[in-house]
Amino acid sequence: MNIFRLTGDLSHLAAIIILLLKIWKTRSCAGISGKSQLLFALVFTTRYLDLFTSFISLYNTSMKLIYVACSYATVYLIYMKFKATYDGNHDTFRVEFLVVPVGGLSFLVNHDFSPLEILWTFSIYLESVAILPQLFMISKTGEAETITTHYLFFLGLYRALYLINWIWRYYFEGFFDLIAVVAGVVQTILYCDFFYLYVTKVLKGKKLSLPA
């Protein structure tokens, strides 16, 4: 465990909590892509099946349980409790275009052709693109609430910090996981355009709105 990994995890946790609190406090999930949140719930579910097979540390187990519980709570709030506020008309990204290719790729390129390992690989690939429905929704409506942009910032920051963590681990532990690194790079690149808007607009007190 190094400082980049830890702050990455905490940044991820912050993103998840910010989104949950935003929905809970405003009693609304307007502007939030339910599809992205469903994909994240699927990501955590398929990745953390190793909770049943291997124990790594108390930290590891508790964080996994928190991530899974929060992602299911978010999906519940969007599709059940605050369904009336869900902006389904703008959440039109075709998720099968992500899930099907990612599913195929995880069968073809993995560390080990075993069910748990294929599901882990699937979750790594899927996580790298799971934010696309949310970014698509923002590009469609042309704007995002400031709190939603904070959520996206911490979510992107988490993967960026993981990249530094992997460089650290490569040099100091000889650890290198090509699948995680390639997917992590792809994931971070997807946030670059957003990071630019976040720094130039949101941090200067302006609302994130895209030119028409």
Binding site: D50, S54, K64, E117, F176
Partner: peptide, 10 residues
């Protein structure tokens, strides 16, 4: 150098 069955990252 990693055991694929033990992914220690989140």
């Amino acid at each position: 150098s990693m055991d694929p069955a033990k992914h220690d990252e989140l």
